[in-house]
Amino acid sequence: MATRKRKRPLSFYVLATLLGGYAIFLYAPMACVYVLSFQGPQGGMSFPMVGWSTHWFEVLFQGTGGQGVGDIPAAFRRSIRMAVIVAVLSMIISVAAGMAYRRKFPGANLVFYSAIASMVLPGIFVGFGIALTFNLLGWRVNWFTSGIGAQLTWTLPFGMLIMFIVLGRFNPAYEEAATDLGANARQRFWMVIVPIILPGIIAITMASLTSSYEEIARTQLNVGTGNTMPMEITGLLTAATSPVIFAVGTITTFVSFSLVIASLLVMTRLAKRRSSRTAQ
């Protein structure tokens, strides 16, 4: 094609270099972490490598193996449990709010802006405020009350924004057509709206899952007894003097990538199931 043969402008090379530099800045340090997590038992926290081993992973999984290393598996379970609950709640509330905002109601703008404003509030003070309020009321902070509540102040605004955009682009003619064909409100929702906005719903759930899993500012004062993963890792960073911390980094990255790949697989399977209905 003629366009292919045209000489590339200078800006192409400038921008390509910039992108390359960005990718190195992003991934090279993490590659160091992955490599160092396989440090030999006698090795330290920096290069050079003193042999290769999985010693630090073993230390990690034994629980309290190294100095300053807490019970990582328990923290992981706590974080995942909370992330799953927060993700499901965010998904349900966001879809409900998105549906509500399809019609105008008095005070709609106020509710909208107050929800969005919590995105820009400094998280540590939101967390502090919640903990303080619980204290004033004489309630105990707990992972399933104040903990989940504090995380929702972080995941919900994003979930709701995504849903407003998804449902804002939803063609109301689909609903009218469904009504015309005799569907009641429930059938309209489950048989028409949900299948069409399903990619958006999955996106909200995955985004809430990951942002809950790595949230610390709002969580730390509200989670009650028992650390979550990010808190454990922050502890490690200040206290640990062994490559265990790199092993944590490697495993965390592995888990995150698994989540991303799993959700992509779900998406492609959905897409495939649609196209597989196509007759040859």
């Binding site: 063609n171 003619a173 689909y174 009218e176 057509a177 469904a178 015309d180 064909l181 028409v192 299948p195 069409i196």
Partner: peptide, 10 residues
Amino acid sequence: SMMFQDYALF
């Protein structure tokens, strides 16, 4: 029964 302008097929 109504046929919509952009058909509104699901």
